[in-house]
Amino acid sequence: LADDRTLLMAGVSHDLRTPLTRIRLATEMMSEQDGYLAESINKDIEECNAIIEQFIDYLR
């Protein structure tokens, strides 16, 4: 059971955070005209990261 939990934490961490990191990188490359959009996307990314952290904390 502990091994399954560790594997799940690693999978969640990698499989969800990697795309979020790519999205954040894309927002950094957006033009200044789209700053409001990038800010909104980054806020959503932070919310997703917080949910992931809560899930990982729960698994521990």
Rank of each mutant, 00 (worst) to 15 (best):
P19W: 10
L7A: 06
L20H: 13
R22I: 13
M29P: 09
T27F: 12
D44K: 04
I51A: 15
L25P: 07
A38C: 13
R5N: 09
R24S: 04
E32N: 07
R17G: 06
I41Y: 11
L25W: 03
I56P: 06
H14M: 00
E39S: 00
A2D: 06
S40C: 15
H14G: 01
L37H: 05
T21H: 09
S13H: 03
L59G: 13
L25R: 10
I56S: 05
Y58F: 11
L7E: 14
A10V: 00
N49L: 15
S13V: 09
L1A: 11
V12R: 03
L59W: 04
M29F: 09
E39K: 08
L16C: 02
I23K: 05
L7N: 12
K43H: 00
D3V: 06
T18D: 11
S40G: 11
D15L: 03
Y36F: 15
A26Q: 13
I51M: 06
G11M: 14
Q33N: 05
R24V: 03
I56R: 00
L37P: 14
Y36M: 11
A10I: 03
D3C: 07
L25S: 09
N42P: 05
E39L: 14
R5C: 08
K43S: 04
P19A: 15
E47D: 12
E47I: 14
Q33P: 06
K43Y: 05
C48E: 02
R24M: 04
A10Y: 02
L1D: 14
Q33L: 05
A10K: 08
C48Q: 05
C48L: 05
A26T: 04
S31A: 07
D4L: 11
T27Y: 10
E32H: 07
Q33S: 05
A38M: 05
D4S: 10
N49Q: 04
C48R: 12
E32D: 05
G11A: 14
I52T: 12
D15N: 00
S31V: 05
A26I: 06
I45Y: 08
A2Q: 13
L25H: 05
R22W: 07
M9G: 00
I23W: 00
L20G: 09
S31C: 06
D57H: 07
G35L: 06
E28L: 08
S13E: 09
V12K: 11
E46Q: 05
E39N: 09
M30F: 14
T18K: 00
A10F: 05
I41N: 06
I52V: 09
F55P: 04
G11W: 11
I45H: 03
T21I: 04
L20M: 03
R24E: 14
R5Q: 08
I52C: 09
L25K: 09
M29S: 04
V12N: 02
Q54L: 12
Q54F: 13
T21F: 08
N49K: 06
A10R: 00
R24P: 11
E47G: 07
L20R: 02
E32A: 06
K43V: 12
I51H: 04
S13C: 11
I23D: 00
E46F: 13
R22H: 02
R17I: 12
E46K: 02
Q54S: 11
